[in-house]
Amino acid sequence: MGNAAPVRASGGGRKRKTSMQHQSSISRIAPPPELIDETAVRVWKSQSKILIERGTFEPEDAPLLLAYCNSFAMMIKAELKITDWAADDGGMVVMTGDGSIKKSPYVAVRNDCIAQLTRTGSLLGLDPLTRLRMLGAGNGDGGSEEGNEFDEF
C-alpha cells in the first residue's frame, strides 16, 4: 500500500475565531495628552473600551485610535462651522474677495476627516464590514466555503 496521503475530513480545516477567543493584553488605556479636545477624549474612552472588550485592541494600536479620535473631533468642529450660518466664515459656501462664492474650506476639512475616520476605523475594526470579518460573524455552518486568500496567515 505504501505512503497514502492523509485524508482530511470535511470542515477539518482552520476554525473561525469567535469574539470569546480574543482577549486584549490590556484592560484599559488612559487617553493620551495628544487628543485635541474633550470630544476626542470621549471618543477615546468609548471606543477603546469597546475594542478592549472585543479583544481586538493592543497598546500598539493606540496611534491609530488617536488619529481616529482626533479626526472625529475635527469633523465635529468643521460641522459646527458649516452649520453656523451667522458667522462670516460659516455655512457651506463663503464669499471670495471678488464677490463670488466658493465651497467653504470647512466642507473639505469635514470630508478629509470622514476619509481618515473611514480608513483608521476600518483598520481598528470599527466599521460593520471589517468587524464582521475580524470576528468571523455571519459565517455559520450553512455559509459558503469561500475564504480570503490571506485567512491562513
Rank of each mutant, 00 (worst) to 15 (best):
G90S: 05
G90Q: 06
G90K: 11
G90W: 05
G90T: 05
G91V: 05
G91M: 03
G91L: 03
G91N: 04
M92R: 12
M92W: 13
M92T: 11
M92V: 05
M92C: 03
M92D: 09
M92I: 05
V93I: 08
V94N: 05
V94F: 05
M95K: 15
M95T: 14
T96C: 15
T96H: 12
T96G: 11
T96V: 11
G97F: 06
D98G: 02
D98N: 12
D98A: 06
D98F: 07
G99K: 11
S100P: 01
S100D: 14
I101A: 13
I101Y: 14
K102W: 09
K102Q: 15
K103M: 14
K103G: 10
K103E: 15
S104D: 10
S104P: 07
P105E: 13
P105W: 07
P105T: 07
P105S: 07
P105C: 05
Y106P: 00
Y106G: 02
Y106T: 02
Y106Q: 08
V107D: 05
A108F: 10
A108S: 14
A108M: 09
A108Y: 13
A108G: 11
A108P: 00
V109S: 05
V109A: 05
V109F: 00
R110C: 02
R110H: 10
R110T: 00
R110K: 14
R110L: 04
N111D: 15
N111Q: 13
D112G: 09
C113Y: 01
C113R: 02
C113V: 00
C113G: 04
C113L: 00
I114F: 07
I114M: 08
I114D: 03
I114S: 06
I114Q: 07
Q116L: 06
Q116S: 08
Q116I: 03
Q116P: 00
L117R: 07
L117T: 02
L117F: 04
L117Y: 04
L117I: 10
T118Y: 10
T118F: 13
T118S: 15
T118V: 08
R119D: 13
R119T: 15
T120S: 06
T120V: 08
T120E: 13
G121K: 03
G121Y: 00
G121T: 01
G121D: 01
S122P: 02
L123D: 02
L123F: 03
L123T: 00
L124Y: 04
L124W: 03
L124E: 01
G125L: 11
G125R: 08
G125H: 09
G125I: 09
G125S: 10
L126N: 06
L126G: 08
D127R: 03
D127Y: 01
D127I: 07
D127S: 07
D127N: 11
P128W: 12
L129C: 01
L129G: 04
L129V: 12
